[in-house]
Amino acid sequence: MLESQPPSAVAPRAAAIDTLRHLETPEGVEIALRVAGPVPRVLAFGIDLAVRAAICLALLPLVGLAGMGVGLLLLALFLLEWLYPVFFELRSGATPGKRAMGLLVVHDDGTAVGPSASLLRNLLRAADFLPLCYGLGLAAMLMDRDFRRLGDLAAGTLVIHRDAPPQPVAVPPHPPLPPPAPLDLATQQAVLAFAERSRTLSPARQAELAALAGLTVTAPADAVATLLGIANWISRGKPGTDGPMHPARRRDDAGPGATP
């Protein structure tokens, strides 16, 4: 039954178009970076431009200090133009604009960006700017698979979407039910995801998906409930025994036995 093998983690990905860049750490852990495209980056640049303009405006009263003040203002403009992104990228990996858009600058192996790479990618803004308003940089971004502008290509960096801190998503409570047959990993994950996302799905769509899953033996009317029960079974384990992923229950069970 070759065709009904569990969906391989690699096969569909090789062909499917996506904005993920897959890396494997030396420990054999696979991580996926979500590369950021032109629209969020242009908007982040716009925000940064506004921030820099605001700083310039705040520094404008320096002109009142005659020659010295103008010199200081020019120095500040120079620093803002060239070192503003470097400073913020080295500090937290993103300028305020990028942070607002949820972006992050990293090396193309996923590590935090270093001084040399950050300096290089920001000094090469001059090349990206040509011939006007980042024309070359945008063209490079549209042509590159990972949306890298020339500075990114030279410095070996990527701009990615920052991963949001994982939110604990609860599976809706339901009496656990055993699955009718052993499920492969992909199906288990899908069943759990179905339970976690069932609140965002319409009831009709829930019923449709549950019927599609084909895990119900009884009437299809309570297919959703069955699927939720299986999800609870997967996440908490069989009722009355130690669940594989439920340490609280295990502690409760061990308590009375350990103290006679």
């Binding site: 992909a186 994950q189 995801a193």
Partner: peptide, 15 residues
């Protein structure tokens, strides 16, 4: 996002 197409693909592959 609204219709969970990714789950549908997994379920379809299964059954």
């Amino acid at each position: 996002e609204l219709e969970a197409w990714d789950l549908e693909l997994v379920f379809r592959r299964r059954s």
